[in-house]
Design a protein around this nucleic acid. Structure first.
Length: 419
RNA sequence: GCUGUGAUGGUGUAGCGGUUAGCACGGUGGGUUGUGGUCCCGCCGGCCCGGGUUCGAGUCCCGGUCACGGCCCCA
């Protein structure tokens, strides 16, 4: 009876304080870079997510039929909703747009440590810019956030590649278009699935074992020089990646980023630079993932508009912050406890509380008949700064007693000068 | 889909065949106190459900339910 739905979390006030702290850092990092917040419904039509590219996301949809027989899904990610919103106003939006959101996202799957069926995912996206300047700006938002919670490039690394690297390799093998997207989804699983499974899936797409070996060799490259050797310095993919690294260097964030050809990402819609943030120790799942998706609107039936963005879940980063001792002790934010001695002073206590509140103090008024002992313990438990006592003799003279709890210092203050 | 571990007051836990089922927090009443944080005392409140083994089960066995992990998979 007291249990929530499997894979969901309750946020008690002490948990909510931490969540708000984290979200405030998200907001601040995005706002500091000129992004605006948006939101969309948690419920979407299922067809928004049922793509044809073999992505598992559609298998893990938290979906159902409503009373009108409509097939709906709880959003597993924010990007399709965002794409829908952008498409609906495609002619009217002043480009580029820089938007962010902290939506709750859902998926139906087996729960594990750090993986519920629900999480909050900070999404930051730029639409209407083709250049890697936009991708670099996203990296800057991320680095700003990490610094603001006390994480450094010793803790984290942003691993970057580009779908164009694979595109060039696969193109030379005669694989392009839809097959290319499907290949990316399979290649993304290479380090998780047995080689024969991967080979079988790739051969279904008409890719020979020799080509598979070629792909694997490219994916093993972990530095820019290596990939330049492999693709040739004139290649678009190389030029783009080099440009991105150079821009990130200008932001002063060069130390955070590394090239890694094995970063592919499991979503079919990526088209250009893709990245993941991982902990240096390699103990956690990816903290954040993102990339460029210039042709998503086209697949949804609209006109293409270049776009790039990332999604950043709240669970994995909290694990890291807790492990590093970076989650601060947060107080309840109550500054005053107001207590009227006895029922006849209840009204007076309300007047005092109102006065304090109008002066901008957070006042927790004791609404019941409680003993002084309880009031003190209560004030201590909620971490109040002061206890404001309305006592019979003093109140007769228009005075209240104010006690600073930490120091024990006590003073008598008239209602007029109370603040 | 496969698998492991667990379930004891409201919360967190100890107990591993015979205990008045212990402790801490909480709630409540009282003592001390300046009607006053600490401290001290009393009280409230519990063995997930159903079978079985046993003279006797919170404890062992079987089934169920739920929870938390791991694998598979992964926005």
């Amino acid at each position: 009876m007291t249990q929530g739905v499997r894979g969901t979390r309750d946020f008690y006030p002490e948990d909510m304080r931490v969540r708000n702290w984290l979200f405030e850092r998200f907001h601040e990092a995005a706002l500091s870079h000129g992004f605006e917040e948006y939101d969309a419904p948690l419920l979407e039509n299922e067809e928004l997510y049922t793509r044809k590219s073999g992505e598992d996301i559609s298998q893990q949809l938290y979906n159902f039929e409503d009373k009108g027989g409509r097939k709906l899904a709880l959003r597993p990610e924010m990007t399709p909703s965002l794409a829908r919103m952008v498409m609906a106003r495609s002619g009217a939006l002043a480009l580029p747009i820089k938007w962010y959101s902290i939506p709750q996202c859902w998926r139906y799957e087996r729960t594990q440590r750090g993986r519920g069926r629900e999480h909050y995912q900070w999404n930051v996206d730029i639409w209407g810019m083709e250049g890697v300047e936009a991708d670099a700006e996203l990296i800057s938002v991320l680095v700003h956030f990490f610094k603001s919670v006390g994480l450094s490039s010793d803790d984290l690394v942003i691993r970057v590649s580009s779908r164009k690297v694979l595109e060039e390799v696969l193109g030379s093998l005669g694989i392009a278009g839809d097959d290319f997207s499907k290949t990316c989804v399979i290649v993304d699983k290479m380090d998780r699935l047995p080689p024969d499974v991967i080979e079988a899936q790739l051969q279904d797409l008409g890719i020979s074992p020799e080509s598979v070996a070629q792909i694997q060799k490219i994916l093993g490259i972990g530095d820019l020089a290596g990939i330049e050797d492999a693709l040739g310095s004139g290649s678009d993919a190389i030029t783009e990646i080099q440009s991105l690294f150079s821009l990130v260097e200008s932001y002063g964030a060069g130390g955070w980023m590394e090239f890694d050809a094995s970063i592919v990402r499991g979503l079919a819609y990526y088209t250009g630079p893709v990245f993941e943030v991982q902990d240096r120790a390699g103990e956690l799942r990816a903290i954040c993932g993102g990339g460029r998706y210039d042709r998503l609107l086209g697949t949804l039936g609209g006109k293409d508009l270049p776009a790039t963005g990332f999604g950043f879940g709240d669970m994995v980063v909290m694990e890291l912050l807790e492990a590093k001792g970076l989650v601060p002790d947060l107080s309840t934010g109550n500054s005053d406890v107001v207590f009227g001695m006895g029922p006849e002073l209840r009204g007076a206590a309300m007047t005092v509380a109102s006065t304090l509140r109008s002066k901008g103090r957070n006042a927790d008024l004791v609404l019941e008949d409680k003993r002084m002992k309880w009031v003190f313990r209560h004030a201590e438990r909620i971490g109040a700064e002061r206890l404001v006592m309305v006592l019979p003799d003093e109140w007769a003279k228009g005075i209240v007693k104010v006690k600073v709890l930490e120091t024990g210092e006590e003073s008598e203050v008239s209602l007029d000068s109370l603040c």
